[in-house]
Simulated assay, not measured.
Amino acid sequence: MDRDSAKQAAAEAAVQFVSDGMCVGLGSGSTTAYALEFLGRRIQAEGLDVRGVPTSFATERRARTHGIPLTSLDDVPTLDLALDGADEVDDAFRLIKGGGGAHAREKVVANQADRFVVLVDPTKEVERLGTQFPVPVEVLPMAATPVMNALEAAGASPTLRTADAKDGPVVTDQGLWIIDARFPGGIDAPEALNRMLCDRPGVLDHGL
């Protein structure tokens, strides 16, 4: 099975967790995009009464395209299920997320769900986090340099994420910047890195 087929298989399997009457968190990324397509098909074919809470503007647009009714955490603070992808997952079920820059909203939505289902294909499985993907760190623009210095002290090679099609940094849905922190050889202590980033002024959230 090629990678694209594996993504579709993971997405189709995950959508089977959705049942009538559910409120579902809708994640971001390429695998979740397939899940939105399959969920839209189920809604149309089975007449499911389902409402989704999107984690990004891009997901909101895709969900509407596939006919998925949407709501928000203002109206539905507790969700039955959240579906989302990941960039990496290790054998302890620790993840790196945020390749698309929506990790802060993804975490909020996942935290409000009774069940969180992660859609991954075999290429996302790693023995050590950070070996394939950087950890995205969402920061206030004024805090970018201090946070990059702190990441360097923690052994990372941080770079400010920029878009090929324009000058300047990528801006998140929150109006903030993203630092991609690469760790040569992987991350030694994910829990310690999580604590350091969560305690750092100027960091909104990160992809661990």
Rank of each mutant, 00 (worst) to 15 (best):
G186W: 05
A92S: 13
A189C: 12
L36A: 07
L83H: 03
A165D: 15
V109W: 01
L81F: 08
T59C: 02
E152C: 14
A11N: 13
P54T: 04
A153Y: 06
P201Y: 03
E37A: 10
D205S: 06
G185A: 03
L79V: 07
D4A: 11
D80W: 00
A163T: 12
D20G: 09
A58M: 08
D167M: 11
P158A: 03
D167H: 12
R128M: 09
A35D: 07
V135W: 02
R195S: 06
I178A: 00
P201L: 09
V135N: 05
G40M: 13
D121N: 07
D75F: 15
Y34A: 14
K7P: 07
M22E: 03
T123R: 11
E191V: 12
P54H: 10
L26R: 11
V53K: 09
V147M: 10
P169Q: 05
V18E: 07
G202S: 02
I178R: 08
F133Q: 08
V18N: 08
A104F: 12
P134F: 15
Q112S: 13
P54S: 02
V147R: 09
A82I: 02
F57L: 15
A35S: 09
N149I: 13
D114T: 03
P69W: 08
P146W: 04
P69Q: 01
L193P: 08
H206C: 02
T131H: 08
F57S: 13
D205R: 05
Y34I: 12
D180E: 06
V139H: 05
E46Q: 14
S30Y: 01
T162N: 07
